[in-house]
């Protein structure tokens, strides 16, 4: 079963659009899939006073994060009738406009894929030990707060 695989979640730097396209293409052979749901988190150029966010630098407690990603994955397969799921999260520098989180769920029908995708994103935001440092246009920085 796909759920037993402990795949690598963290990627260094941004997640590129061709990588995402390729991830979709790889599912051509799984013809029992009827629906994919994708979430893409993009670094936003928030205004901070006179400055704006030009990039986010991500760091993680990687050992704990890997355990957490695995737990979320196992739970997602128990909770939703998924055919497969993939999570990719950036580490290091990701510029505004680039993708830092990619969650990809697939199922027979749309509702399960959509619900699972949202549920996984919320769990990642709340439970995975990753921190974003916002780099501002004047080269100062501040720690990101998730809303």
């Amino acid at each position: 079963m796909e759920s037993k695989k402990k795949h690598k979640v963290f990627v260094e730097g941004p997640i590129s659009p061709p990588f995402i396209a390729d991830a979709i293409a790889k599912h051509n052979s799984k013809t029992n899939i009827g629906a994919h749901s994708l979430f893409l988190g993009q670094v936003r150029n928030d205004r901070v006073g006179e400055q704006e966010v030009v990039a986010i630098e991500y760091t993680s407690y990687q050992e704990m994060a890997d355990d957490k990603f695995y737990e979320i994955r196992e739970d997602a397969f128990k909770k939703f009738p998924l055919i497969c799921m993939h999570i990719y999260h950036s580490l290091g520098l990701v510029k505004s406009g680039e993708i830092s989180l990619f969650v990809f769920t697939s199922s027979v029908h749309r509702k399960e894929a959509i619900a699972a995708c949202e549920w996984i994103v919320e769990r990642i935001k709340n439970e995975v030990p990753v921190w974003g440092k916002e780099i501002l246009s004047n080269e100062t920085s501040q720690w990101k707060l998730n809303t």
Partner: peptide, 10 residues
């Protein structure tokens, strides 16, 4: 032991 401030991934 890890000191974990609020997470801000994604």
């Amino acid at each position: 032991i890890a000191l974990l401030p609020p997470f801000s991934g994604g």
